[in-house]
Design a protein around this nucleic acid. Structure first.
Lengths: 235, 235
DNA sequence: ACAAAAGTGTTAAGTCTACACCCATGA
DNA sequence: TCATGGGTGTAGACTTAACACTTTTGT
């Protein structure tokens, strides 16, 4: 027996929801689709799964194609398989979400794909069911970040507490008390204070911190739970 | 343009990890595979996605095929797509996990598929990468049950607090103080006390409770967090 | 009358929340 | 010197964890 005969084979695609944080707003990276149908409309970066690559490999390839980045945080989100989601031919799409340090993103590549960063609150109309994919990704990043320290993936290697706080406020769309925030974050033992300061944001300057990678992996599960309003997990 | 020519099409399967609780132990339902390869070995219930059905529909169909049950809790888990996972032909598998009331399961169907319930701690060797699927499902059910009231799906419509507690203890593999347990569970407002008792477990009998469905949907998010040892979420 | 499981309250410890002032610096 | 953002501590409220005895009833 060589094949499962009689069974129908389908197209399988991978679509990536790529998150970045510019210091102020959480954004996603979208491209202008380069082929029909829906050519020139805004779309997630995606591609078909090739015969010799796993799903994770496909997602990494697609991410690298647009951003040149490798080894970034990439997690499988959900698989979308409604029969009519692609009008040309049935295509099942496995979605991944990526968290990248926006500073490492090479803007030159944007041109090839006509890529642009969009604030999560101003995402344009997307092709097919990609709106739904983005919603699922927003929900997942909040859900996961409420308990796991994934948001550090969006920051550069050295970052300040005010930056980190702005990021959390932006992801959870809620103000956080800075005294309580710093106490809780520092209590995790995940941060190592540096001696130098970031003077960009203020005259006094804010101390840089780096992740303690040992503790990071150890505490990745069961991190903390400091979102003021759990309702923010709802949507 | 009618098709995405030049792209390779793949087989797509759905595999279900079906959980049940017999009042003492958390179990999964396995079948003896009826065709080659690996005929007669233990396997998850699964099947190929058909041209005219969505993934959710396929999962429901497969679940119904084995259990005759419909409308049960079914959630997409993860999609497995390593190129070599099925030795005959590349097949990507979308996994779902189901939570069913084991009492509603008709044992007669077991015979057609040679199905059997296995305690989670004694799962036999499974075909392909299904061991990994079961691990992912165990992890997910714990993770989710730590914050959402999904475990009620494993119980009959009327159940007692001791039953519920045994279920939580079994899922999280940890003893729970019954005074604290009943306080917290009742504080959620999800349970309605009945007037009759279950006399099966003791001479005195334990009061039955039913879910308050209104509160159930309202509180499904942000339920409670009463697992003594968060380490149990780790594996 | 006794064995076996159900049911129920209190206290101390720990955690979380709210809140306000001083510091450092560049302009 | 002043405007701007950075950094820090405490008290009260609330939540959680630990713990033991009484009730019911079938045998």
């Amino acid at each position: 027996m060589q094949k499962y005969s009689k069974q129908t084979r389908l197209l399988l695609a991978v679509d990536c929801i790529i998150f970045g944080f510019d210091g102020d707003t959480l954004k996603i990276l979208l491209i202008k689709r380069s082929f029909e149908p829906q050519k020139d409309n805004w779309s997630l970066m995606g591609g078909f799964v090739q015969p010799k690559e796993s799903l994770d490999q496909a997602a990494n390839r697609i991410l690298k194609q647009l951003t040149e980045l490798q080894g970034v945080y990439l997690e499988q989100l959900h698989t979308f398989g409604n029969t009519k989601r692609d009008p040309i031919e049935r295509t099942v799409s496995v979605t991944y979400f990526a968290l990248i340090d926006i500073n490492k993103y090479q803007t030159q590549l944007s041109k090839d794909y006509h890529a642009e960063w969009f604030p999560l609150k101003r995402v344009p109309k997307l092709i097919f069911d990609q709106q739904e994919m983005v919603e699922a990704a927003k929900k997942r990043i909040r859900y996961k970040a409420a308990m796991h320290p994934i948001l550090f993936e969006l920051l550069p290697g050295k970052f300040t507490l005010p930056q980190l706080q702005t990021l959390y406020e932006s992801v959870f769309n809620t103000p956080i008390d800075k005294r309580n925030f710093s106490k809780r974050v520092l209590a995790t033992g995940l941060l190592i204070k540096q001696n130098d300061k970031d003077k960009a944001g203020s005259k006094r300057g804010a101390y840089y911190y780096q992740l303690n990678m040992q503790n990071y992996y150890a505490k990745f599960q069961a991190f903390m739970n400091f979102i003021p309003n759990p309702d923010s997990l709802l949507h």
